[in-house]
Design a protein around this nucleic acid. Structure first.
Length: 422
RNA sequence: GUGGAUGUAGCUCAGUUGGUCAGAGCACCAGAUUGUGGCUCUGGGGGUCGUGGGUUCGAGUCCCAUCAUCCACCCCA
């Protein structure tokens, strides 16, 4: 146990960090272009925030939260998602007083007590954006575009965008009843899960994968046909905006998001190669979330992208990804101790060169092997003979050529050679 | 939370119906070249066979439990 990370968690090892940095750089760049600023929110919040914000009947809240009591007796919860926290921060810092919309993004770990599976972890990471203070359909389109623009900038194509409108509280509750009415006599034909959903959240019956359930709901009314005028117009405007941008999407009237706060626009982006976890991005509008947690009725829209899943999708797409840059120089020694070599290594570093050396008293041969394995282009050989002559031998590992350089001019010489390289 | 598969060196895997079964390749270290890498050859270190019980004269090899991973469901990123 001591030597194993807890279930559903994992180390991100040095070899994979370049890919994470690649992801984060592209995310920052996309957000800069779209005008979203970074916000850093706490890793845990008052449990109440998620109960109210995400919704008590959602699976996330009902069975997946990491909740604990701190020494002051407070009930706290490791954040299972970011939107509720950002809404809280918006309220707490009175951002309704700033120029609207307020557009922010975040990245970081989220925690859900799920059963782990490929592309699903108990501690996973999300990159998300939120925009508060506007109901403008063009903003919905911008948010969708940001997600697509970013994912494409990573090199992902073959993405599928699913789009739907889940309406507002008024038309949704009206629809909920007409759906219940339509299914009234058929509840027994549904799977056990859907039997429960019939009572608690009948909309979810629509995207049940069970074939029998799908057959039963085939003739059921669709929310898209029962939206109120406001929601219908909004949805039409969002689609028109996306059409004008030339974005391809699938209208999926059965797309129902699992969090209570969603209203109107709901969307999801899928990528191939991830098995059952094909959803890499989920988002939508949440026009009453801020009001739900006790603030003014301020609309918002956002999305969250699962970093692990995107990285898996990139690997599946054969997009090799980034590699760590090799150091510039390896200082090898012969008849000189590591302690004696270190000052010379430091000189190189002070001159801005990434310099490595051996700390295991390896033979010269082994040191060259090491330098080769690390992909280092230049080796500086410090031997007794060189030091006596006030020189070092510089070897170019690519050509095999070597040259004597005076110790005083070493940094300048190497800097020059490295500059030629690129 | 439900169902199924898997778990042998750092990695990928062999290991017959339980009796030299603790192995191979790659990786790592060293030598062949008393101060020089990438190829080749030789040698070496490393595993309580996930863990804990049980059956047996004897168990990676059978049984049970447990943990973990993977797949599907649930749900979601």
């Amino acid at each position: 146990m001591l030597t194993k990370a807890p279930r559903g968690t994992k180390d991100i090892l040095p070899a994979e960090v370049p890919q994470w940095r690649f992801f984060e750089e592209k995310a920052r760049e996309a957000c800069r272009l779209f005008g979203y600023s970074e916000i850093r929110i706490p890793m845990f919040e008052h449990t109440e925030l998620f109960l109210r914000g995400v919704g008590e009947v959602t699976d996330i809240v009902a069975k997946e939260m990491y909740t604990f009591t701190d020494k002051g007796g407070r009930s706290l919860t490791l954040r299972p998602e970011g939107t509720a926290s950002v809404a809280r921060a918006y309220l707490e810092h009175k951002m309704q007083g700033e120029a609207q919309p307020v557009k922010v993004f975040y990245t970081g770990p989220m925690f859900r007590y799920d059963r782990p599976q490929a592309g699903r972890y108990r501690q996973f990471h999300q990159f998300g954006v939120e925009a508060f203070g506007s109901q403008e359909p063009a903003l919905d389109a911008e948010v969708v575009m940001l997600a697509l623009f970013f994912l494409q900038s990573l090199g992902l194509d073959k993405l599928t965008l699913h789009l739907n409108s889940v309406g507002c509280p008024e038309c949704r509750s009206r629809y909920r009843e007409s759906l219940r009415a339509a299914l009234r006599g058929k509840v027994k034909e549904l799977c056990p899960d859907c039997g429960e959903r019939y009572e608690k959240n009948p909309l979810r019956i629509l995207d049940c994968k069970n074939e029998r359930c799908q057959a039963v709901t085939k003739e059921a009314p669709l929310l898209a046909d029962e939206l109120c005028n406001g929601c219908r117009e909004h949805f039409a405007a969002v689609r028109a905006a996306l059409d004008a941008l030339g974005v391809a999407y699938v209208l999926n009237p059965r797309l129902v998001r699992g969090l209570d706060y969603y209203t109107k626009t709901a969307f999801e982006i899928m990528a191939p190669g991830l098995g059952a976890q094909s959803s890499i991005c989920g988002g939508g509008r949440y026009d009453h979330l801020v009001a739900t947690i006790g603030g003014p009725d301020i609309p918002g829209i956002g999305f969250a992208i699962g970093i692990e899943r995107v990285l898996l999708a990139l690997a599946a797409a054969g997009s090799g990804g980034a590699e760590a840059a090799a150091p510039d120089v390896f200082v090898a020694t012969a008849g000189v101790t590591p302690a004696e070599a270190l000052p010379y290594v430091m000189e190189l570093r002070k001159a801005g060169l990434a310099a490595e050396m051996d700390f295991l008293n390896r033979s010269l041969k082994a040191q060259l092997k090491l330098a080769d394995k690390k992909g280092i282009r230049y080796v500086v050989l410090l031997g007794e003979a060189e030091l006596q002559a006030g020189q070092a031998t510089v070897k170019d590992m690519q050509s095999g050529m070597q040259e004597a350089v005076s110790l005083g001019g070493l940094c300048a010489y190497l800097a020059e050679r490295l500059k030629e390289e690129n």
